[in-house]
Nucleic acid binder design. Structure first.
Length: 451
DNA sequence: ATAAATTTGAA
DNA sequence: TCAAATTTA
């Protein structure tokens, strides 16, 4: 009874125990990844590169016995089932609204075929929906969620891949079904694949975890784990990471809290799928946002890192030039878009999702809603980040700015001076596009109007 | 009740 | 050919 294993993302093989542990010896399994053509047009090149690289390493780990195919999953999967006479389809679980819709479409397409379909391999420590209050309702605030989340707990990582199944060689299938993993030729500052993820994690644990609580907000330091893209594409499992954390110490406890945030936002999206693109708090629908030609111009300056605010521009250029941005800087540039430029948070969220290699629907959208004040557990609306003092505080020597904004890397702007261009902008660097003090007042006025 | 890209389908 | 519907992040 052959099985079709559909990787919606590159989950670790040893995190697929439902299949690998329950399968009878010698079960024939075809591992496949269905590449939706539109995925290739709506993702930035670095995102696509990381996906392609991840797929190639997954294929390597399966000795090439991974079928990469193209088309709509609800069309491809039934076709593949016929090709190999599959009786079961296992899908790597996905809790995004898109994933849920896709599962339904595939299930509908398989309805009359007698093929069973099941989701497997939750990419979270605690699967969305499992952390609830005593009355069964979902948490809307992170801190109480965190306490209950710890109590629910999770199992350890699977010991090893029990590869007693026979992987079907895709070379035996029609050549028409096979395509290459995307390879747009983009430069990445992070290696894809399970081995690279694990090596990076061990390096972080050994060298930076102890200082994580203190240094995690410092974009000038290599103080964070850089696991976000690996978590997004499943090349590492949070269970593997959590097993290395001694929660009694400050650094590990602080890191675990971030993993809990990831689970929290996944649970929020699962509970309220519309919060991906609409205000979770619908009171915010009434807020006044700018959308005209002037707004488009400001949005372009923000995207290109030409706002005249050094920390904002450094972050936006890091994003565009590397596909990553330090989390503290994400908050600063988001606050700037929402509260200084008065643009809809969705504009920023979309740009992030497209450009970030780690762009994840739940984390990204709710992170933006947090900044906009419209989300669960949102930042108080009156908290308007001052981009200059944020920069001074978290990049005290200006090293981060000099790394990403070459116009500000000259010797005349030593150390912290790079945050306040008191002699005006150097050649090639723009004047500030807004007056922060004035826009802060304007933002408070708009927020005040919706009560 | 998003914005952008794409497909569908009515003229 | 163009507007409407669908799909996607």
């Amino acid at each position: 009874m052959p099985t079709l294993l559909w990787f919606r993302r590159d989950l670790r093989l040893n995190d697929l125990p439902p299949l690998l542990e329950a399968a009878a010896d010698g079960t024939e399994v075809l591992a496949c990844f269905v590449l939706d053509p539109r995925l290739e047009t709506s993702s930035g090149p670095r995102r696509l590169q990381f996906l392609g690289d991840s797929l190639r390493t997954l294929a390597d780990s399966l000795d090439g016995r991974l079928l990469i195919t193209r088309g709509r999953p609800e069309e491809r999967i039934p076709l593949l089932c016929k090709q190999i006479n599959a009786t079961d389809v296992h899908i790597s679980a996905d809790f995004t609204p898109f994933g849920v819709r896709r599962d339904a479409a595939v299930a509908a397409a398989l309805a009359d075929s007698g093929v069973t379909l099941q989701a497997t391999g939750s990419p979270y420590l605690v699967t969305p929906g499992r952390v609830t209050k005593d009355d069964g309702t979902p948490y809307k605030v992170f801190t109480p969620f965190l306490a209950r989340w710890r109590d629910v707990g999770w199992r350890g990582p699977a010991a090893s891949a029990t590869a007693k199944v026979n992987w079907i060689d895709p070379a035996d299938l029609s050549a028409k079904l096979r395509v290459d993993a995307p390879d747009p030729g983009a430069d990445l500052d992070l290696d894809a694949g399970e081995a690279a993820a694990l090596a990076g994690w061990k390096e972080f644990v050994g060298s930076h975890l102890a200082d994580y609580d203190e240094d995690r907000n410092r974009p000038d330091k290599a103080a964070t784990s850089r696991m976000s893209a690996h978590l997004k594409f499943g090349t590492i499992h949070p269970r593997t990471m959590a097993a290395d954390l001694d929660f009694r110490a400050k650094g590990p406890a602080s890191y675990l809290r971030e993993l809990a945030f990831r689970d929290f936002y996944a649970a929020v999206l699962d509970q309220w799928p519309d919060s991906a693109w609409w205000n979770w708090n619908r009171n915010f629908d009434a807020i006044e946002v700018d959308t005209g030609p002037e707004a488009t111009k400001a949005f372009e300056a923000w995207k290109e890192g030409r706002t005249g605010f050094p920390i904002v521009d450094a972050g936006m250029r890091q994003l565009r030039d590397s596909g990553f941005m330090h989390n503290r800087v994400r908050m600063i540039v988001a606050s700037f878009l929402v509260k200084d430029l008065h643009l809809p948070w969705q504009w920023g969220a979309q740009w992030f999702l497209e450009q970030l290699v780690d762009g994840d629907m739940a984390n990204n959208q709710h992170g933006w809603q947090w900044c906009a004040g419209s989300g669960t557990d949102a930042a108080p609306y009156f908290r308007v980040f001052n981009p200059t003092t944020q920069g001074q505080k978290f990049d005290p020597d200006g090293e981060y700015i000099r790394r990403w904004v070459p116009e500000l890397a000259g010797p005349e702007l030593a150390g912290v001076d790079v945050h306040r261009l008191k002699d005006g902008p150097p050649p090639g660097y723009p004047e500030p596009i807004v007056d922060h003090a004035a826009e802060r007042v304007e933002a408070l006025r708009r927020y005040g109007q919706i009560g």
